[in-house]
Design a protein around this nucleic acid. Structure first.
Lengths: 341, 341
DNA sequence: CTGTTAGCGCCTTCAA
DNA sequence: TTGAAGGCGCTAACAG
C-alpha cells in the first residue's frame, strides 16, 4: 500500500507538500499540485487514517454498543445513527452485547483501545460493568434509552407514556379486564411500560391484577407463550397490551390458536411501529416509536460533544403515537357482562 | 488519556519494559511486572490500538458493507459476522450503502483509509463503482451472496434452488396457475429465484406467464401492492411464490383484503425464514435460508485470508430448506377445474 | 511557494 | 533482566 513518502519521491517534492495538496492546507503552485495529484492517482494512494489519527488524536469513528442488532428496533436505531454519522464523515464500529456484561465490557475495552471519538451506548441490563471503564477515559458517551449514569446525555423513549396511551385506548373502548404482555422484568423499558399501563388502570379504578402480567422473552415466541398463558386464565382478559410489536404478533397467533377472533373476542395493542405490524392479520394497533429519530438526534448530540461544543446536558424521552388499526375494538358483550357482574 | 510513556515514568522503568509486561513478550522480573501492572491499573491505562496499528500494519478491524441493516436478513448476516469476528478479537465497522453506488464508494474509501484488515461485502446492485477502489489495494475481500468479481471468495445462497423448491412444493400440491412476487429486477437474487421458479414450471410443462410476475420493493408494502396486482389478474393465480418472507407477509394481507382465504383460496410460499413468519396468520410456508451461517463462514474465511493462509478460492451457495406451514395447500376445486378447462 | 524536522504512541531490534 | 533508539505514516511548526 503506497505511502505519502513514496508519492513525494515519485513527484519530486517533500512529504509536507503532498500533505498540503491532499488537505488543501496551504498554497501550492498549480503545476506542483497537478503533478502530485497525478502521482496519487497513478499509485492509487489512499492516505492512512491510522497515521492521521495518531497525529491528530481523532479517529472519526464512533462506537455503537447494542444488545442485539437483530432486534428490529435496534436495527432501526442503528440506521439513524449511521445516517447521521456518515453525513458528518464518521464511521460506525458496531458491537453486539447480547445482554452479556462480560462481552459488553470486552467490546467496550476494544472500542477504547481503538480510540473511538465517542460512544452511543444501548446499555441493556449491564450497567455496572461498564461504569469503571467509562470513568477512566474521557470519551464522550450518549445513552440510548437505557439509563446508566445521570451525568451522561440520554435520549430515550417515553415508555411510561407508551404504556399509558395503549392502555387508555383499550379502556376507552370499554375494556375492563386488560392484561399486559411484558418483556423481561429486568429491562427498564418493560417496567416503565408496565408502570404506564398500571397508571391508566389505576386511574380507571381497575388496578392491574398481578396474574394479568406475563413476563416473557421480547420476541414473537415469547409473546406467543405469554399470551397463551394469559388467555388460559380463569377470568380471561378481553384485551392485551403487548410491550412490543413482536410480542403482539406472537399474541395474535396465540389468539388464533385459542379460537379467539381479534378484535371481536380479544383486542391486542402493541408498541414499536414495525413495518410488518401494519400488514399482519389483523393489522396491529400499536404505539409507534420514533426510533430512527432517536438514533439520529443522539448522534448529532454526540458529534457536538466530540467537537468540544458544550451543549447543556440533555435528558429526554421521545413520545410515540397511538395508531389504531384493526386489532383493537370494543369488548365482546358477553364478556363485558360477565366482568361487570 | 494515559500513554505508555507516562506509565513507564511513574513505574520507574523504560517504555519497552512496559510494553513487554503488557504483551508478555519477554521475561520481566516479578516485582517489576507487579509494579508496572499496579501503575497501569492506577492510571487506567489502556493501550492505543491506533499506535499499535501503525506499527504492526494491522487494525484487527473488518469492514462490513451492506445495503441496509434494517432488512432482517441483513441484520441476521451481520450477527453471524459479528459473532465470528468477536470470537477472533476483531471489531466490525458497519456501513450502509442503500444501493447507492456513490455512498457505497465513499464508505469503501473510508474503510480503506482506516486500514481495515479485510472486508465483507454485500455489494447490492453497485458493483462497478467498487471495483477500481478494490483493485488498487490488496485488502482481502469476501463476497456475501452478491457476485462482483470471479477472483474473490463468495459464499451466498442458492437462490435458484430456493425458487425451484418453493415452486415444486406448490406444483406438488396441484397448483397449475402460479405467480411470482419478485423483488426489484436489478437484484440478482431476485432473478435467480425467478429462474428457479421458471425451471420448475417449465419442467411441469406449464411455463411462467410474464403477466404472473410482479417486480416490487422487497418489503411488506411491496408484497402487498404486488399481490394485489396479481390477484386482480383475469385468470388469477391459485398460488403465489414470494421471493422474500416480507413480501409474502404483505401478500397475506392483500389476500385477506381481497376476501381470499389462505390457504383455501390461495397458497402463499415465502423465502427467508424470518422468525415472525412462523407466527403470522396463517403461519407462512417458506424456504428458510442459512444466513447466520453464511455470515459466520464468510468471516471465518476472511480471517484465514487475513492471517495469510491461502485456502483455495471458495465459491459456494448454501441451500435453504422448505418448511411447510399453514399458508400452502391444494388449490380450490373450482379454480382447478377452471384452469384445466 | 516549499522543504526540514520533530513528534503522535507503540513495538522491536540491538546493546548492555 | 533491562534500556536506548529508530521508525510505522502523517501533520504542523519553523525555516528558507
Amino acid at each position: 500500500m503506497a505511502t505519502m513518502k513514496q508519492v513525494a519521491e515519485r513527484a519530486g517534492v517533500s512529504t509536507s507538500t503532498v500533505s498540503h495538496v491532499i488537505n488543501n492546507t496551504r498554497a501550492v503552485s498549480e503545476d506542483v499540485r497537478q503533478r502530485v495529484l497525478a502521482v496519487i492517482d497513478e499509485m492509487r494512494y489512499i492516505p492512512s487514517a491510522v497515521a492521521r489519527s495518531l497525529k491528530n488524536d481523532k479517529t472519526h469513528t464512533i462506537g455503537v454498543s447494542v444488545p442485539d442488532n437483530t432486534d428490529p428496533a435496534i436495527a432501526e436505531l442503528l440506521r439513524g445513527i449511521e445516517d447521521a454519522a456518515f453525513a458528518a464523515g464518521y464511521t460506525i464500529m458496531l458491537c453486539n452485547g447480547y445482554d452479556d456484561p462480560q462481552r459488553q465490557a470486552a467490546h467496550l475495552r476494544g472500542l477504547i483501545e481503538r480510540r473511538i471519538d465517542g460512544l452511543v451506548l444501548v446499555a441493556g441490563s449491564a450497567r455496572d460493568e461498564l461504569a469503571p471503564l467509562l470513568a477512566g477515559q474521557r470519551v464522550p458517551v450518549v445513552l440510548a434509552d437505557h439509563d446508566v449514569a445521570a451525568d451522561l446525555d440520554l435520549i430515550g423513549l417515553d415508555h411510561e407514556a407508551t404504556g399509558y396511551a395503549a392502555t387508555r385506548h383499550l379502556l376507552e373502548l370499554g375494556h375492563k379486564r386488560i392484561a399486559c404482555l411484558a418483556g423481561p422484568a429486568r429491562h427498564p423499558a418493560t417496567r416503565e411500560r408496565l408502570a404506564g399501563c398500571r397508571r391508566a388502570l389505576d386511574e380507571a379504578g381497575l388496578g392491574l391484577d398481578p396474574a394479568c402480567v406475563a413476563h416473557v422473552a421480547p420476541d414473537c415466541q415469547g409473546g406467543h407463550e405469554g399470551a397463551r398463558r394469559l388467555l388460559a386464565l380463569d377470568r380471561a382478559p378481553t384485551a392485551l397490551f403487548a410491550c412490543s410489536d413482536l410480542m403482539a404478533l406472537g399474541a395474535l397467533r396465540a389468539a388464533q390458536e385459542a379460537g379467539l377472533r381479534v378484535p371481536e373476542d380479544l383486542s391486542v395493542v402493541g408498541a414499536c411501529g414495525l413495518e410488518m405490524a401494519a400488514f399482519s392479520t389483523p393489522r396491529l394497533s400499536t404505539v409507534t416509536q420514533p426510533i430512527y429519530q432517536m438514533g439520529h438526534a443522539l448522534t448529532a448530540l454526540l458529534l457536538q460533544r466530540i467537537r468540544g461544543e458544550q451543549p447543556p446536558r440533555r435528558r429526554e424521552r421521545l413520545r410515540g403515537q397511538l395508531v389504531v388499526r384493526d386489532s383493537s375494538a370494543r369488548p365482546p358483550v358477553r364478556r363485558l357482562l360477565a366482568a361487570a357482574s
